[in-house]
């Protein structure tokens, strides 16, 4: 008899609310010398200083609603999008709010938790915290988690550009890490998102997330970037995270400042799309819808 290998199942710790409360306190203190993301700015956000993300000490949000856009196994999800990000992707679909940490409304953890709990009662399967990038708002995100039922399935939607400090604070807090691997090389990351040392940082985060939670990796196919970005990402995933769930997304939308880049004047071609999915199959990636 051939037995399939057991599927890894991660459940956040049963005393998550209490632990999250304590972590939120630590995360807020960390803002005095903010090194939550890999930019490693070291600014005192509690004293009004801002680093590359321009975020202050208090989180804001620009969207909170039930959605069915995400992976089928996660939806419907109550999705909370915090304003601001530590990357500057020119093609960002929510660029106006993601580039501006002051966009939207002040984030009240208690009120948002009430909305999230109501959404769960009404049929939402999961609660997703995203941005922008939620890592830069770790204190508020953890305060929010502390107010949610321990049994709720929580999703951390991230650009995977955090540092060790953020990961330690996040350990055991979210059931699923839904992490982007956007660029297959540092040159594209620098040109399109103004970020250096991108590939190493993301790989480090993905390897960590795979051993500390359930991991789903997302890659958005970009016109003109199948060879330089998708191919190396796919090859690395096949070699280093075999079997990891991968959501290969083909709906590139020339949003925000995408038109600054010649290759983004068109949408993804049919041949690029076919090649990208063919490569995934060839490498044995575990694609999920």
């Amino acid at each position: 008899m051939i037995c399939a290998p057991p599927e890894k199942i991660f459940r956040a710790t049963r005393n998550r609310p209490a632990l999250a409360r304590e972590r939120a306190r630590l995360a807020r203190a960390a803002l005095a010398d903010c090194r939550l993301c890999a930019h490693d700015c070291g600014v005192n956000r509690l004293a009004g200083e801002t680093g590359l993300c321009h975020a202050g000490a208090e989180a804001r949000f620009f969207s909170a609603q039930v959605e069915v856009s995400d992976e089928l196994e996660l939806m419907p999800t109550f999705s909370v999008a915090l304003s601001g990000c530590d990357l500057r992707c020119d093609f960002c679909i929510t660029g106006k709010e993601s580039w501006n940490a002051r966009a939207g409304l002040g984030f009240d953890s208690f009120q948002m938790a009430e909305r999230a709990k109501l959404a769960l009662q009404n049929g939402a399967r999961t609660i997703m915290v995203l941005g922008g990038e939620p890592t830069i708002h770790l204190p508020s995100a953890l305060e929010f988690v502390s107010l949610l039922p321990a049994s709720a399935k929580l999703i951390w939607k991230t650009n995977a550009h955090g540092r060790t400090q953020a990961r330690e604070l996040l350990d055991g807090m979210f059931d699923v890490w839904l992490a982007d691997f956007k660029f297959g090389n540092d040159a594209c990351a620098q040109r399109l998102a103004k970020v250096s040392d991108y590939v190493r940082v993301v790989q480090e985060n993905l390897l960590w997330a795979d051993t500390h939670s359930e991991l789903i990796v997302r890659h958005l196919l970009m016109p003109g970037h199948v060879e330089c970005c998708w191919r190396p990402v796919a090859a690395w995933l096949a070699a280093n995270l075999p079997g990891v769930k991968v959501n290969l997304r083909a709906g590139f939308w020339p949003a925000w400042h995408a038109r600054r880049h010649g290759e983004f004047k068109n949408s993804l071609s049919v041949s690029e799309n076919q090649f990208a999915f063919g490569l995934a199959t060839e490498l044995g990636l575990n694609l999920i819808p």
Binding site: S63, E67, S69, S79, E97, G104, L105, G251, W253
Partner: peptide, 25 residues
């Protein structure tokens, strides 16, 4: 900003070739 945070928002883009893109569905 206030209205987008307080109300549900879904954005749709329809290209000239008829392709429809949507996010925050």
């Amino acid at each position: 900003a206030t209205s987008s945070a307080e109300k549900a928002v879904c954005e749709i883009l329809i290209l000239p070739d008829g392709k429809i893109f949507a996010h925050n569905i």
